[in-house]
Simulated scan of single mutants.
Amino acid sequence: MNDVGSAIVSLLGPVEIRNLADKLDLRPTKKFGQNFVIDGGTVRRIVRTAGLSADDVVIEVGPGLGSLTLALLPEAAHVVAVEIDPVLATQLPLTVDTRGLGDKLTVVQADALRVGLGDFGGHVPTALVANLPYNVSVPVVLHLLEALPSLRKGLVMVQAEVADRLAAPPGSKVYGVPSAKAAWYADVRRAGPVGRTVFWPVPNVDSGLVSLERRDPPATTATREQVFSVVDAAFAQRRKTLRAALSSLFGTAPRAEEALRAAGVEPSTRGEQLDIVAFARIAEHLD
């Protein structure tokens, strides 16, 4: 990482952020999940932990007023910032231009749940680094991993309990649909806690960093959609055995049991005990 570059760029502190918000008559909304980072040390830590190289193209979702964006720009070849709020999307290039880094930024005013590779002006993202809106964090992560196979790594800040779920291993009490689906795409781990006071407005929950390292999905003849349908069914009613939980998906409980045994899974097992490889084996027996 280019520590010299990081030192040159002045980041946004609490005063600058409040001044910008006043200028824009901005009132952070729950609709967009807006909580802006006001602590320079936190954004530097995020960038450092992300392990970016000078040739990385970063996609940042929900850049807000630009706290994290300004720390990312010196460390990457380019940053594509996806912002749903038109006021913030218009302001961000102006903020970046004052630091002389406008040529390294592309702002896409769009819903991150609907963007694809063709929306980024020819830039091909290799890393996801973002303070994600809490209300859509898991869907955004899963959508981008699917829509952008070029993504090789990521570091996202999410609500602490969501971070726990994303990184949970099989057998954990919080292992579930987000854990299993994220594991289809990547090795996922917790990368540290983040306190509430680094945000404005201060949220009523703690946050956490989650690291993602892309890897190949399990070798299987089933499609991703088939595997995910098994995952969804398995966790729809967590207390049920897989024989019962998958009965609707396979048509009957006996057919579900037959598929489970063929996949080498004991029918009395519950979904939280299986890894993504086992779910893929089960999905191979769907019609």
Rank of each mutant, 00 (worst) to 15 (best):
Ala283Thr: 10
Pro74Gln: 04
Pro201Asp: 04
Leu212Met: 13
Glu272Pro: 03
Ile276Lys: 01
Pro86Ile: 10
Ser247His: 05
Pro170Ile: 03
Gly264Ser: 12
Tyr185Asn: 11
Pro254Gly: 07
Val107Met: 11
Ser150Pro: 03
Trp200Asn: 00
Asp55Val: 07
Asp55Met: 03
Val140Ser: 11
Ala222Lys: 09
Ala186Arg: 03
Ala182Glu: 04
Leu105Pro: 13
Pro63Ala: 02
Arg152Asp: 14
Arg99Lys: 15
Ser172Thr: 01
Pro149Gln: 02
Asp216Ser: 15
Ile38Glu: 00
Ala262Asp: 08
Arg48Ile: 00
Glu257His: 13
Arg196Ser: 06
Ala7Arg: 15
Trp184Cys: 02
Pro218Leu: 02
Asp232Thr: 15
Arg215Pro: 11
Arg270Gln: 11
Arg243His: 10
Val156Glu: 05
Ala236Met: 14
Ala21Ile: 04
Leu148Ala: 00
Gly264Phe: 10
Ile17Lys: 10
Thr95Ser: 12
Phe228Trp: 15
Ser248Trp: 05
Asp25Ser: 14
Thr126Asn: 14
Tyr185Arg: 11
Arg270Phe: 05
Ile276Ala: 01
Pro169Gly: 09
Thr220Met: 08
Leu68Phe: 04
Thr269Leu: 08
Ala130Leu: 01
Gly271His: 04
Leu113Ser: 09
Ile59Ser: 08
Ala186Cys: 12
Ala147Pro: 07
Asp232Leu: 14
His123Arg: 14
Leu24Ser: 02
Leu24Arg: 05
Gly271Ala: 07
Thr98Leu: 14
Ala21Gln: 07
Arg114Ile: 00
Phe32Ser: 08
Gly271Lys: 02
Thr220Ile: 07
Leu26Phe: 15
Leu105Met: 11
Leu286Pro: 02
Asn204Val: 11
Leu73Ser: 04
Ala81Lys: 05
Val138Ala: 12
Leu142Gly: 10
Val9Asn: 01
Leu166His: 00
Val37Pro: 00
Gly154His: 06
Gly121His: 03
Glu213Ile: 13
Gly116Ala: 13
Gln237Asp: 11
Ala127Met: 13
Gly171Asn: 12
Pro267Ser: 02
Ala253Thr: 12
Leu286His: 04
Thr49Ala: 14
Arg114Val: 00
Val37Ser: 03
